[in-house]
Nucleic acid binder design. Structure first.
Length: 447
DNA sequence: CGCCGATTCAC
DNA sequence: TGAATCGGC
């Protein structure tokens, strides 16, 4: 008999997917089901309860064919170890590189997930919630967490206890599957990164004009490569790659830190982690709706910001440096509450991860653990000139500025022909809005 | 994983 | 005069 394992994200509402429901109900197979997303499950909450309730109801209606199990995938796999023909489907409401169903945006992935993910049920070297200080409390600051994380250590790459075959769910078809997805592609990207860009990663990671980041975030998100695999290989690259390997390990540590923070404080996904700035006055409603829309569409009139927002729309990915600058622009220049931007990013980023994304936004907004102080305001022009020195990144994404040479692309207002090809004027004055942000900061602090 | 203005310093 | 440095936000 063949057995399928169906992975659900906690935010999937079965009732919204009649085709999937029908497929599940018509199958003769036994379908053990478990809910994935180990970080968010820690928080529980209404949506988890709703999903579990709907799965339980479905199981009953299917007369026991559907075996609902919530928890560690490894345990489910182990239970099925005697099954020779085991299939797996990963169903997610998130945008994914795997292609999309036209009707409801559900993406179906059939590529193999990496064995460590299946073994551990966690896409982290050290699962969230495991690193505590001497008092048994979670760390609130990155650096001590990072040290403890190193000291804790992690197992090497794992071995899957069963030969799992992967297929689509009955009745599901895969539409528009693109190349560059799956475990083989992830490993290929990883090897290329090690060979070409790890050595210069310390500087290269900040350069959106060069393609010198790892580009592994999507693969990490979908479990196509596991951090334990990467850490094991990085250990052997340490000396040869100078600071690059060290920096990359630190970036992995940030990812684990934010997952850990969210594990302990699931409410921080959409609310300020710290309440010092709870009195910060933000703008909302119709008066800023147009400005936010300009930000979303990449027509703020600030070339570096617009390039980033257009890359996000077009590619489903944005360079990390530009994420910080565009986020700062929404929060500090448009005075908009960070969840508005975080939601927009999550809706378009293929690598969108709620812990990294939303805590990154809180870092920018000055409300998070280890956050930057609110008064640290990015200047979109200075940042652009520093990290896109030749203006190549701007010209790549903003064709209206393609006629400007070199770093002139960062300041079209200084060129007589700057606006000749339809580039929009600045929607706000950065110097003015920076002062306004600091004024509001003073107001919020005095409360 | 700041920016800016003031001040100091180097020429 | 402009680059480096410092402190407040």
């Amino acid at each position: 008999m063949s057995t399928s394992i169906v992975w659900f994200r906690r935010d999937l509402r079965l009732a919204d997917h009649p085709a999937l429901l029908a497929a599940l109900e018509s199958t003769d197979e036994v379908l053990p089901v478990f809910v994935r997303d180990p970080v968010l499950l820690a928080g529980g909450g209404a949506r988890v309860e709703r999903l579990e309730a709907s799965l339980a109801a479905l199981s009953e209606s299917m007369d026991g064919k559907l075996v609902v199990r919530t928890g560690n995938p490894a345990e489910v796999i182990a239970d099925l170890a005697q099954e020779a023909d085991c299939r797996q489907v990963h169903i997610s409401r998130e945008p994914s590189p795997y292609g999309r169903r036209r009707d409801d945006g559900v993406r179906v992935a059939l590529e193999r997930h990496e064995r460590e993910l299946v073994e551990t049920g966690s896409p982290y070297a050290v699962g969230p919630g495991r690193i505590l200080n001497r008092s048994g409390e979670p760390y609130k600051v990155f650096t001590p967490f990072s040290r403890a994380w190193h000291d804790h250590g992690w197992p090497g790459p794992g071995r899957l206890p069963v030969d799992v075959r992967w297929a689509t769910a009955p009745g599901e078809e895969l539409i528009g599957r693109s190349s560059g997805v799956g475990e083989a592609a992830a490993l290929d990207r990883w090897r290329t990164f090690l060979a070409e860009d790890l050595g210069g990663y310390e500087e290269g990671r900040d350069r959106p004009d060069l393609d010198t980041t790892s580009r592994l975030s999507v693969h990490l998100k979908y479990g196509e490569i596991h951090p334990r695999t990467m850490l094991a290989e990085l250990a052997t690259h340490r000396s040869a790659s100078g600071d690059g390997a060290h920096r990359f390990v630190t970036e992995l540590a940030w990812r684990e830190f934010y997952a850990d923070v969210l594990w302990h404080r699931p409410d921080s996904a959409w609310r300020d982690l710290r309440d010092e700035l709870s009195a910060m006055p933000y703008d909302d409603g119709p008066e800023v709706a147009g400005l936010v829309e300009a930000w979303r569409e990449g027509r703020t009139g600030y070339p570096f910001v617009d390039a980033g927002m257009r890359q996000l729309r077009s590619e489903g990915w944005m360079h990390n440096r530009v994420r910080m600058v565009t986020a700062s622009f929404l929060v500090k220049d448009l005075h908009v509450w960070w969840p508005v931007g975080a939601r927009h990013f999550l809706s378009l980023l293929l690598d969108g991860d709620i812990a990294s994304n939303n805590h990154g936004w809180q870092w920018v907004a000055g409300t998070g653990t280890d956050a930057s102080p609110f008064f640290r305001v990015f200047n979109p022009v200075t940042q652009g000139r520093r990290f896109d020195p030749q203006g190549d990144y701007v010209r790549r994404w903003v064709p209206e500025l393609a006629h400007l040479r070199g770093s002139d692309a960062h300041e079209p207002w200084k060129a007589s022909e700057g606006y000749d090809h339809g580039y929009p004027e600045r929607i706000v004055d950065h110097a003015e809005e920076r002062r306004e942000a600091l004024r509001r900061y003073e107001l919020a602090r005095d409360v």
